[in-house]
């Protein structure tokens, strides 16, 4: 690996741009959290690196685009992976579409993207890959966004689980993330759910769980 330059600092990792044997790559380095008990911190960091690498690989094997993993170092808590060049996050793309067009036009233009996201999630869930942190910032569109080359990233909270509950919560997390980040995105999310349901034969249980998790929302009893 060559010398690296910091490109972004997130809540739990720093992203560097570097090269790996001549190929441009991204180094994701998880850093220590001093507020956490040291053994909890170490165990969470290792767990998340492993989950991330496993899910990146497993998603690719099932036809969902993710960055290729080049190298993993648990000692320094680093994952070195393919750089998705010439890409924008789905978050930025939605914002730019909504900014440049009327509400009605943007809903129409974002429809195919919603369908693509729904199909992609269906593939992940059919293969029991639960992402754990679905947001529009964790999805990239490579080259021309109209081509819908969707690349999924940030699998640190992922796990493999065949439970409808976990998949339902996955969708719930996405719903909350979309509605809190993007105004007037109800129809966009319905489109995602619609195409998810059509592409995933086992979706009935998941949608039932999604409804149940939504109900759990607001009011909790203080007794008991």
């Amino acid at each position: 690996m060559s010398s690296k330059t910091l490109i972004k600092q997130g809540a739990e990792a720093k992203l560097y741009s570097a090269t790996f044997h001549g190929r441009p790559c991204i180094v994701k380095e998880r850093f220590k959290k001093s507020y956490r008990h040291p053994s909890l911190d170490q165990s969470l960091t290792n767990q998340r690196i492993k989950s991330e690498v496993r899910a990146l690989l497993r998603s690719r094997m099932n036809g969902v685009r993710t960055p290729t993993v080049y190298f993993v170092d648990l000692e320094t808590s680093q994952i070195c992976m393919e750089e998705i060049r010439d890409s924008v996050t789905v978050r930025d793309y939605i914002m730019s579409v909504q900014k440049s067009q009327s509400l009605e036009d943007s809903i129409v233009q974002l429809k195919p993207l919603g369908r693509k996201i729904g199909e992609t999630l269906a593939v992940l869930h059919q293969n029991n890959i639960v992402h754990g942190d679905l947001t529009t910032s964790n999805m990239l569109l490579q080259s021309d966004p109209m081509n819908l080359n969707l690349v999924m990233i940030d699998f640190g909270l992922s796990h493999f689980e065949n439970l409808a509950e976990d998949k339902g919560v996955d969708l719930y997390v996405l719903e909350r993330a979309i509605l809190s980040t993007h105004p007037n995105s109800d129809e966009f999310f319905s489109e995602i759910l619609d195409s998810y349901t059509q592409s995933n034969p086992g979706s009935a249980d998941v949608i039932a769980k999604l409804d149940e998790v939504r109900m759990r929302g607001r009011k909790r009893t203080m007794v008991g």
Partner: peptide
């Protein structure tokens, strides 16, 4: 003595 317990964070939940 620290006992490791289930740690469940899903997105921001």
């Amino acid at each position: 003595k620290f006992l490791e317990l289930p740690y469940t964070v899903k997105g921001m939940d």
